[in-house]
Design a binder for these strands. Structure first.
Lengths: 331, 331
DNA sequence: TTTTAACGTGAAATCGTTTACATTGCGTTG
DNA sequence: CAACGCAATGTAAACGATTTCACGTTAAAA
């Protein structure tokens, strides 16, 4: 854990030369290189990323920030896994920031990330017009948004065609004969919720099913809101025969209620929602779902981020990946 | 985003004085303090955590490392949440390292963490005798282990009484009348697997059930091994009537097989295993499980870490939290 | 043989802090 | 009134790297 100074002293050269062999730039005589390498090994020297980052900010110091709304949601865990894996391949560490939909906390983390001089940031912002994040983008920090974009500003985005995914799902329900299809939305206001609702409404219209606003409920994207909103729906005098859920936490919550009410799936009520889970087959019946390629979203985001770090001028990319309707037992 | 220099210049003082007001140490005249505060506000100054960390290493620079084996496992996600939440309260960011049971990757991350001059580390090491991690501990890095300890060395540990948890679970199965109780273990060799197996065997003995080594299978703690090992068990000529699983991923895998084989739970085969999940009630039937207070493990670990950072000499604490047997529908 | 270029190296500035030490001025005290 | 303590502030070194510039040496080109 010595410093460059100690290495230099031991090898009998200056720190500049040590730096040169470490970074493989500049010319250095083979003999001295060997001497220095030996000294490095002997001292178990490891360069301080902190010092490096301080000295040359903006240059790659191999530290990314990741800002996610809710790590309890398996979708974001998968995104995170994709990010982590590719960051690792790129010799980078990540500072993980989980803001739990709390804007104060988001702000806190954004400030920290800035102050940590990260190379770049992958973020799922709380809002489309997150002022602080926007400012960081315009100030030149490389940023890639995932799952949600940023309005009125050019920024790289990786997400999914939410409207199409929802449309296909609800269309499938309709084609399967369901007529009273409910929608339990996640956080109202965030783009994905809006677009999924649009897909839902369009699919109803396409199948000549009248829209009934008593059949759509708005929650907060958490497990608990799935539980209670599903109950509200199923206790109506004329309950839905199928439920389309806005995300996986809500799905799980709804499932809990359905089981508690001892209803059969899909005979009494079918269920299908956004976000597949690797254990969808562990459920009984197995769970149908709209699959987002979460892991891939994470990977792509890192790719874009690295590109942008290398070339801050390249024009922004909006990458929309496809969803896949996983037809299984629950709908 | 100016530097202390700019603040100092604008306020007409030296950087030392600025530092003093920022850190609230040393004496500074009220009038100058106000001047400086105004300059800070005006320049939107934010101190560089990087510079601070470089200058004063070992002193609190509010950055922790977290090293987990598998972020896909909801248990570690919960631990992580606990850590994150408390770290946040402590104004700290965390570098998340997910080594996926890969020792090369673990080594890579440990080196990075060292090189990032973190204040302290919370880790679930790959082995009980993880040499690199041990060396970091003896070198003076504040470390708290979670879920798994480190052998032959004094270090703070937060975990759960695995043997007791397993014993209670299997004892409960036995008392419920099950006689052929299988065990699907996670990664062999890691302490938690060993202790859970011990609890399993002790419970069998306590209930006069002969141990049958064909009923214990060893996997790798992942979903897939639950799937295949469960199938092996259920296709025996004399299959088990209950399965005790070593962790939640295995449970989920086993569930998948049981469903695929169209067996009824718990009539044909009961299932109960380690690690509760917040959506245990979303399963049909609801899943019985040994609950580890994962979130609390994370919180406690941060508490211990902060204590150790403040007082590197305090003697080590081994904290064993209690498990809780969640009796639900599956066993 | 002289000019030029390339090579190999070191000195020193720099990044943005913290902090030990020095300095100044002023009120107390013997 | 000299000596002292203390409050308020500044100076400069350090943390550990990168990088620019300069300098000497040697080989190639003219």
């Amino acid at each position: 854990m010595g410093s460059m100074n100690e290495v230099a002293r031991l090898a009998g050269v200056s720190i500049a030369t040590v730096s040169r062999v470490l970074n493989n730039n500049g010319n250095v005589n083979e003999a001295t290189r060997v001497k220095i390498l030996k000294a490095i090994k002997e001292l178990k020297y490891q360069p301080s990323r902190v010092a490096k980052r301080l000295r040359s900010k903006g240059v790659s110091s191999n530290l990314f920030g990741v800002l996610v709304p809710d790590i309890e949601n398996p979708f974001y865990v998968d995104v995170l896994r994709g990010i982590e894996e590719l960051a690792y391949k790129n010799n980078s560490a990540i500072i993980m920031c989980n803001y739990g939909q709390d804007e104060r906390k988001e702000k806190f983390y954004l400030e920290i990330l800035q102050s940590e001089s990260i190379d770049g940031l992958i973020a799922a912002p709380a809002h489309e017009d997150d002022v602080l994040l926007k400012k960081m983008v315009t100030d030149g920090l490389p940023v890639v948004c995932v799952d949600r974009g940023l309005s009125g500003i050019d920024v790289d985005v990786v997400l999914v065609d939410n409207a199409a995914g929802a449309f296909n799902a609800v269309d499938y329900l309709a084609k399967s004969g369901y007529r009273r299809i409910a929608y339990i939305s996640g956080m109202p206001g965030i783009p994905s919720s809006l677009l999924r609702e649009k897909g839902y409404r369009d699919a109803l219209a396409a199948n000549q099913i009248p829209f009934d606003n008593r059949l759509v409920k708005f929650g907060n994207s958490k497990h608990h809101s799935g539980v209670v909103l599903c109950r509200e729906l199923l206790e109506m005098e004329n309950p839905p025969d199928a439920i389309f859920t806005g995300n996986n936490l809500i799905t799980l919550g709804a499932l809990e209620t359905i089981n508690a009410m001892k209803l059969r799936i899909p005979e009494d009520v079918a269920i299908l929602g956004f976000d597949d889970m690797y254990w969808a087959n562990s459920l009984n019946p197995s769970l149908s779902a709209v699959r987002q390629p979460a892991y891939e979203i994470g990977k792509r985001a890192v790719e874009l981020l690295i590109q942008r770090i290398q070339d801050p001028e390249r024009s922004c990319i909006q990458m929309a990946l496809n969803t896949e309707l996983m037809k299984r037992g629950s709908a």
